[in-house]
């Protein structure tokens, strides 16, 4: 029995090692698998992975409308105070007051790109964008207001 275990150990070991070598050998012989991006030579055709996280943005649709309700969940979720939401009250046609955002202040220089704010947002108003060329000469340029001027909340989002 001992001998049988011993031999099967050796066979299993060798075959698993060979499996690994087959995989790496496949990569070695298939240059189409290479994923290196030769930035900045290929700046125009750069392909980034979908999950690449470069900065937080707030998408707006063609009517300049976003879906942020100003609930400040993202502000609370952020571990390092990157986000500051300033709210205001809009008056609806029926004469009721409704909370809305005045400014979504985002300080890129403090953001660790941890994605917690995006996960916390109940109405999917913010997301991560794959922009990474963030260098500027003036630090204040990194403090951004994400809601575009004149934008308003989309109909039907509470």
């Amino acid at each position: 029995m001992f001998l049988k275990d011993y031999i099967s150990d050796v066979v299993n070991g060798v075959s698993s090692l060979l499996k690994g070598m087959r995989k790496t050998g496949y990569y070695f012989t298939h240059s189409k698998e290479i994923i290196t991006e030769q930035y900045p030579d290929n700046r125009a055709t750069l392909k980034l992975a979908d999950r690449f996280k470069g900065e937080v943005v707030m998408p707006h649709d063609e009517n300049n409308e976003h879906t942020c309700t100003g609930c400040t969940a993202c502000e609370l979720a952020c571990p390092n105070g990157t986000i500051k939401i300033i709210t205001k009250f809009d008056i609806t046609p029926e004469g009721k007051k409704k909370k809305a955002i005045d400014a979504f202040i985002y300080r890129l220089e403090m953001c660790t790109l941890c994605n917690l704010c995006v996960a916390a947002c109940p109405s999917d108003a913010i997301k991560m964008a794959p922009n990474f060329e963030h260098s500027v000469f003036d630090r204040s340029k990194l403090t951004k207001i994400l809601n575009k001027p004149g934008s308003k909340i989309k109909e039907g989002i509470e």
């Binding site: 790496t24 990569y27 070695f28 240059s31 698998e33 290479i34 994923i35 290196t36 030769q38």
Partner: peptide
């Protein structure tokens, strides 16, 4: 070079 090719790099 071999390392790069095996790790799908250039």
């Amino acid at each position: 070079k071999v390392a790069a090719r095996i790790q799908i790099r250039l």
